[in-house]
Nucleic acid binder design. Structure first.
Lengths: 195, 195, 195, 195
DNA sequence: AATGAATGAGGGTTCATTCAT
DNA sequence: GATGAATGAACCCTCATTCAT
């Protein structure tokens, strides 16, 4: 990649970052191309030169975001920490990139962008799930996880809690409950049977 | 309430129902006043006569929805069924009124309507939480729930799972996992220690 | 039609007239909705309320024009004048409504509006041609027209000359040649064989 | 002209050809500089380097076209064929370069480019008309043309028919009528008086 | 000389809201 | 009280043209 392309790529990134930030704070439909252009310090038309349409811009912002999120996810999984800590981090990681993307942004995409969603579906199914399943299986082998429980159910559980935590209002409230929540995660509401 | 007022009230309900249905299917911002007017078989101005602005209409639709949801919630709590079953129903109840309201609709309100949110906050804090706490305490007394776990954490857990289930795509996939999920809910990923 | 509808109809006509005048003077693409709105003394949105889109406005303007032109045509055919004079009028009638519509406007329609063109085709084939054929046949019976020449060819000839005359620049130049042209029309370039 | 200039001239021709083709198929206003640049395999700015503005590009394209058309016209006039055949060819020549140029393109120029039109006017008046007049006079001398009819009228007639034929829809329909039309041209609707 | 990148101005269209009946 | 008609503001997008390399 020569200087030309690098500058071009840099500018594209600027626009993506600006758009991502605005979309996540105010939602996709509330944000006009003009606002993105202003935040990214380019003209509206430049955005069109790079992305052709708002529709497509949203799509690319989304893919950009997904890749970013995937990186963060990898760092946890590859980290040199014990199983329970990994689960904890997966659940409680509040991605800087993603404050409330799951609500507004994701919904928007679900309705509008079949291809975009296909991409994340594919990534999710091919990349994330297998690694989590591996993690669970390892947890079962190490005695951390009940072998009678299906990996799908655990997956669902972690997802649910993780996504709920992404909500700003929720996050503030449950931080002090971290330990309790992990306890619930591991031992359920019936609790640990000490013996 | 005389016949006049009743007819007025009826018309208002028509509009609320029309708006609610449209908002939930397409999102708040995608729906124009004109579309609501058409679906409710009234003129746009009539909507303004009743609700003053779209802003306020959304707010009232929301309150209307919350009341409806509260009714359904009450029916579960007052039902004559065992504790675990109540928990199960609270989690898995997919309100007919609310398919994806939590995502798009709720987000929209969170950002736009401080008063609306205050109302739901208030309702939530004053009506729902106390009743759930009572339920949990009863569960603890009956040995269903670990007394060492804070009610807030349980609340959080149930909320998280419940909301996640509201998503249409999720709901379809986890239905077969119901029992596994309840098992996780009660015994955690470590599982039941049989003895 | 009550007062309401009549006013509505009147307003629609205003817009049609304004649009027609502007289209014919400057061409379809040069004229913006804003300009039509200004000339018709309505807001842009009013135009959209009546016509949905510029595309459709053009179409309706066109149909409006065709009907007008047809009326003028009828007046000539039904007039109480001799055959050669009718031919002359058909050729030389420069419709007030249509200065250069055939060039720019018609071309535009040819490329964009299949349905619009179908309408004029139909009108032309079903209404105009039969009446002209009748006229020619009558001319043949009366000895004005060579029976050996096909009506189609005559039709073509009259059309060609008529359309060419519609061009403003042409019209000015050939007015003094009216008699010569009629002579050519009737006797060709070989000329009348006097005997 | 050295190699440098020749290459430059070649590039200019490429652009002219590309623009002409696009203008004739889609009309002047529908075609953007970007499209021409793409078709001619140059950058937009290159077009500006050569032609300064779209306005001027259109003008030059037009002149380019006129010269081409003139060449074709010359070939007919200088051909070694009889008078009636020449008339026939002048009328029925459907220039490959010019399918519908007379409608859209010509109109556009008429309104926008005084200078461009002046050029064609001048060419027309100084080059084409005199040669046609010569042809008619020769025809009169040879007994093909009625000496009583003004050359202007004949000119007008031929022009009218010729232009009308240029329209694609018309051309298809009247091809089978060629002989009839020539008969009308020569003998009028009254027809040949055989004796 | 040639180009990729950038832009100001403008066009069609939509929408929440108001006016007039 | 209810409605059809009307509107100002804003949005997405395009294009001829210029800038910077």
């Amino acid at each position: 990649m020569d200087g030309f392309e690098r500058r071009r790529e840099q500018k594209k990134m600027n626009i993506l970052e600006a758009a991502l930030a605005l979309f996540m704070e105010y939602g996709v439909q509330k944000i006009s191309i003009a606002e993105i252009a202003k935040k990214a310090n380019v003209s509206q038309v430049t955005i069109y030169n790079y992305f052709d349409s708002k529709h497509n811009l949203v799509r690319e912002v989304f893919l950009y975001y997904v890749d970013k999120a995937m990186d963060e996810f990898d760092q946890i999984l590859n980290g040199d920490i014990a199983f329970p800590e990994k689960i904890k981090q997966i659940i409680f990681t509040k991605k800087e990139t993603a404050n409330q993307i799951h609500e507004d942004f994701y919904q928007y995409l679900m309705k509008e962008y079949t291809t975009g969603v296909n991409y994340i579906e594919k990534m999710y199914v091919e990349q994330i799930i297998p690694r989590l399943i591996d993690l669970f299986n390892e947890g079962k082998k190490l005695g951390y996880v009940d072998p009678n429980v299906s990996n799908e159910a655990i997956l669902f559980f972690i997802q649910a809690v993780h996504e709920y935590i992404q909500r700003e209002d929720v996050y503030q409230k449950i931080l002090p409950l971290t330990e309790d929540i992990m306890r619930l995660m591991f031992y359920g509401i019936v609790g640990k049977k000490e013996n």
